[in-house]
Design a binder for these strands. Structure first.
Lengths: 193, 193
DNA sequence: GCGGTTATTGATTGACGAGTCAATAAACAT
DNA sequence: ATGTTTATTGACTCGTCAATCAATAACCGC
């Protein structure tokens, strides 16, 4: 029963199923057949639309990065001063679309994939550059030339909180994670020595 | 030409080769044959001594954790006050035996493995508990009841710096990494509000 | 209602890789 | 010397899985 215009729906279903499957397995060692089954189609169709397993993963990764980007942008849009801008980047990073067990597990795995896939590495760099520049933009007026190192520390801390969240079963504590990073930020701003 | 007493040498060679191979590939997706070849033996022998691929990985992980533990212990042994104790834990984490490209890549992969292997998860928890208690022991006299959250932050920051180091090719900057975390520590101690 | 496009899958191929095994050989014990 | 234990490997088995393909079916413009 082929309905026309299925391509975008199928692609989206596969991306979703990929994130779910990788999240559930906690590993990229999942088969195309598993993903396709969860998306309600045959593995042949998955190959038809994406060509290869790697492309399926990369599409999933792009989706995660795009959701993350949208969330940070959303948080940023309401910020009216530098301090709120930096806080927005942090809070956006722990928003409900990104800071979920599935997405975190996928994130961790894509970090690993970036070690061997040039394309994955490129995507990860895009995200890191964007986060860095978002942070710097807000930090510069607040801490001047110390903005670089401070952004570095914030970025590393956020990444660290993420992977630690990957290890807990069930949904991670958004509030606690966010507070921890925001507290660090406060310290950096207070002690402006 | 079998020389007797080969077992410990072979096991050690396999552990070393595993860390090298995983580090080079940036992935656990390496074959037992690759590891065995690098260790200068047949894959059959690797299976003979370890039984399964997973056991080879776990032995490698235990080796990494044990080196890490020894380094932290070594750093701690020269600390004479709480502040130096905390600094020792941090500096031990970035000592040359652990904070190397290969070991970092392996670490990241074992983090992933811990999502699906109960044994790997157990080992990781051992390390995390030890680090936590090391930090708490030094922090309690310095920041009192805030020791818990502060240890949390330091731990996450160290983990974050580690995975970020995984993405750079070549050897990571030990000094910069260590300084970044120590600076965070100073802030936590200074602003003791 | 016919050629072309899109959707879809079951079956198949082909490769690869973990783990087993039988066979060989050196060392050791007695 | 002879049997036992340890070391070692090449060859093999057996699954698994990515990727392909031929076949089927629905829709579309004409």
């Amino acid at each position: 029963m082929p309905k026309l215009g299925a391509e975008p729906i199928r692609r989206a279903a596969l991306v979703k199923a990929t994130i779910e499957t990788v999240g559930a397995a906690g590993s990229l060692d999942v088969t195309v057949a598993q993903i396709a089954r969860r998306a309600g189609m045959s593995s042949a169709l998955a190959h038809h639309y994406f060509g290869s397993k790697e492309q399926i993963f990369l599409a999933a990764m792009r989706s995660i990065l795009s959701i993350y980007g949208a969330e940070v942008r959303g948080a940023l849009s309401t910020a009216r001063n530098p301090r709120d801008r930096v806080r927005a980047v942090v809070m956006g990073s722990f928003a409900s679309g990104s800071f979920r067990h599935e997405a975190i597990a996928a994130w961790l795995n894509f970090y690993v994939l970036a070690q061997s896939s040039a394309e994955a590495r490129r995507l990860l760099h895009v995200y890191q550059r964007r986060m860095r520049s978002n942070l710097l933009y807000g930090l510069r007026p607040l801490v001047g030339e110390r903005a670089g190192p401070v952004a570095e520390g914030l970025g590393a801390l956020i990444d660290g909180v993420y992977i630690r969240a990957a290890l807990v079963s069930g949904e991670p504590d958004r509030q606690a994670a966010c507070d921890l990073v925001l507290a660090h930020l406060e310290k950096e701003l207070e002690c402006k020595k």
